[in-house]
Amino acid sequence: MAVDTMIVSERQAPAWKRIGAMREAGLIAIILALGIVMSFASPHFLTFGNLRAMLMSFSVEGIVVVGMTILLIVGGIDLAVGSVVCFAMVLAGSLFLTGVDPWTASLVGILASSLIGMIMGFFVTVVGLNHFITSLAGMVIVRGLCLVFTKGTPLSLFTLPASFKAVGQGTFHGVPYVILIFVAVVMLFDFLLRRATAFRKVFYTGSNEKAALYSGIKTKQVKFWVTVLCSTLAGVAGVIYMSRFGAATPTFGVGMELNIIAAAVIGGASLNGGSGTILGAILGIALLSVVTSSLILLDVSVYWQDMIKGCILLAAVSIDHLLHKRKAA
């Protein structure tokens, strides 16, 4: 056996790329198909207003999805994102009402979110609890903090200056700032995830923590900072929501974490860590958003909506699991 014959054309890379692309292509196909069906079913679906509303609605959640996807890749999970979004919003709002400049207040809100991430990261990496339990506790505690800050009543922030409100409500050459921010975040982290050494370590750690440790990677550090990143992005989303709604509600974002995790998983992130893409996760949240919008336009009872979304999640993940099993065989 000569060495030359053993190499079967190494340039034939696309085989796996095609499979990798298939997931995203499949999601795009499903979204398009749903869009075509809906454009016949409802005259309101394919209007500029509705499309823009849909894009707006998942743009801010999309920022949180980015953080969650990276955390899932490292093998973690964060159930507290909904609470942290709300916390950043409520904290920044309260500070603003005490007379702090809204930009400074927002920065404090975001930094406080990072701090929450650090505390959770501490419990995960130093104390040694798992992400699920730590963030479950975080979810409840932070939600409690929101209620404490507001004494349970929504903060009305109609006095926010127009320059600040513009972040959530204004447009740049007709494109909402929210969408621009979202696209920037997505592109930045998509690039980093593919190219930056620091983020490559996220994949190594999530794929096989022991092997990563044996390769000299400081896996605990990696897990800590990814946890912080996820919380920080949730904080960013929180202040954007505040700007957009001109209000801060202590019950905002209840159940949001499930939507976020569902989107990342539909987009191909594995709960076992080691895999996931930003593009996939964004398509995942787009799909959920199109479904929600469709259900509303079709006048489906709210009571049914959650059930239908749950079934879609189950179907998407099952199909993915079966495809993977076949690939491995």
Partner: peptide
């Protein structure tokens, strides 16, 4: 268990110990 990263690519596996120089 502790040797390779099965779901990462061949290139990513080979480079893991050598990240600094890359």
């Amino acid at each position: 268990g502790s040797g390779v990263f099965v779901d990462l690519s061949i290139a990513q596996n080979i480079s893991v110990l050598d990240l600094k120089t890359l």
